[in-house]
């Protein structure tokens, strides 16, 4: 066992951690918000949204 063998294990572990973060957050997000809200983005709507938020202060 040299440094590279440990790095192999570390790479497996880090990959699993990143994957786990993504999956947990994905499940949490999908169960917290409604589907209409999550898919409410509309092309060309951002300028309007920015304006609206700006006015609400």
């Amino acid at each position: 066992m040299d440094l590279w063998d440990f790095l192999e294990y570390a790479a497996w572990a880090a990959s699993a951690l990143f994957g786990l973060f993504i999956v947990i957050d994905w499940i949490k997000t999908d169960s917290t918000y409604s589907e209409e809200f999550l898919t409410s983005s509309r092309e060309g709507e951002l300028e309007a949204l920015t304006e609206e938020q700006h006015h609400r202060g």
Partner: peptide, 13 residues
């Protein structure tokens, strides 16, 4: 909370 107030969410500029 801000995102929910607007009732829609989009990519950030």
């Amino acid at each position: 909370a801000n995102a929910q107030q607007t009732e829609h969410v989009g990519l950030a500029r």
